[in-house]
Design a protein around this nucleic acid. Structure first.
Lengths: 232, 232
DNA sequence: CACCGCTGCTAACTATTGCAAGCGGATTGC
DNA sequence: GCAATCCGCTTGCAATAGTTAGCAGCGGTG
């Protein structure tokens, strides 16, 4: 329970309920949970499961993920970079080349904004050396032990198309598009390794990431400086 | 509990654990959970909370989301379209114009692939008419009551850059880029409504979606044909 | 005024989660 | 062969999630 801000979740749910102009009982009925329990959730007295949050989100016509973020089940900051990559890569509605094009444009945008590439590997550096006997199993590994940083900087205000920044973005996109389309690969080659043909940066970064991931967590943990679990 | 496939989750965890070459006790220690409980989870006898899944994922160096998908907390298929939109829109590392450019390229790709635009609003059509007294609140609203369809079609094989499909994707991207960059808006206008200046399709669709979203779920539920909760 | 329906809440209860203690079998080192 | 250690598991239990029964207050209506 330590990782959750239950009070914040409850306030958020109550706010969403009021925005939707539901009474407590109406939302409880719509969500299929008991109204006293919903009251307890909103007042921060109970920590609902993901299933209950799904039901509440569905009844409120909001995304379950927004409740998950409030509940600490999802980390909003993890969406940075990695989330867009993952979302694009797993999207079945565009083909592989389109994915590559989108990703390269996206990465170029991020570079323009001074964001260093190489999003954290999923899961991050966690776990303890399982071979260490003096490890106290009762000390739960804190999933995301993050300091309370300042809020993320607000997004830049929207600019009209044709403004310098818009033109710069378009220019970057054009550059990437030209680079992808222009690479000399004969059309007669029926198959090929797309990664080999992609521009150096992203592909090389990706292969490096893949190389690091080949070590199992157990092998990593066996090293000299095995990471320790964050204190509870 | 009905929405979860606990057996599948447990098998998945056990497989990931074995891939990582952990024993049950080692993973339990690393994850900060008791080893009998982990054994029960892997054998499908217990349904762990999201917190426990986070801890296990961290110890295994895999993303918590992959366990969430197995547990039914996240729906992988909902990532289609909507997820990419959301991911791009909430990404703080690129600015608003860059977001618009990426989204329009993405939507054009989807149109090329015959995907109809207009991803479902977050949360979809859910909840029941809260005013209806004969609604049985005990019947939980099933969050995602979907039939067991065939697996998603596999992604097209990767094609080399310069191949016809790659060129077509690049062409589409160029077209979108040209459209965005070329719109006549004087640079002297310091502020403007980006949506107004964006090309017609996406902006108009977006405004329509926004218009629909202005009705609260309570108002929607009050209509003649109020949606019913899927049977449990 | 009495009555009704709705509101949000409390108290008691049941169902479930997650853990501690301990079991028997397999492996390892002496 | 034996003790020590590790393995995966069973059992009982405390804590928590979530429900049921019922309360008091409020506003609307006859």
């Amino acid at each position: 329970m330590a990782s959750l801000n239950v009070g914040s979740l409850g306030e958020y749910i109550r706010e969403q309920r009021r925005n939707a102009q539901y009474s407590l009982r109406q939302l409880a009925d719509a969500a299929g949970v008991s109204n006293p329990y919903l009251s307890q959730i909103e007042r921060g007295l109970r920590k609902p499961s993901a299933e209950i949050l799904q039901q509440i989100a569905k009844a409120l016509r909001i995304s379950a993920e927004s409740l998950y973020v409030q509940a600490g089940i999802l980390d909003e900051r993890d969406r940075d970079g990695l989330e867009v990559h993952h979302a694009i890569l797993t999207d079945p509605t565009i083909n592989e080349r389109q994915k590559q094009v989108l990703l390269q444009i996206y990465d170029s945008f991020r570079k323009e904004n001074g964001v260093v590439d190489g999003a954290a590997a999923p899961g991050g550096a966690g776990g303890v050396d399982p071979g260490t006997r003096d490890h106290q199993p009762r000390e739960a590994a804190d999933p995301v032990a993050e300091p309370d940083d300042a809020a993320a900087e607000p997004a830049e205000p929207a600019e009209p198309a044709g403004a310098p920044v818009a033109r710069a973005a378009a220019k970057t996109a054009k550059k990437v598009v030209r680079r992808v389309a222009g690479r000399g690969v004969r059309a007669s080659r029926a198959t090929g390794d797309a990664a080999d043909d992609a521009p150096g940066g992203a592909a090389e970064d990706a292969s490096q990431a893949t190389g690091d991931a080949s070590r199992t967590p157990a092998e990593d943990a066996g090293g000299d400086a095995a990471p320790e679990a964050a204190p509870a």
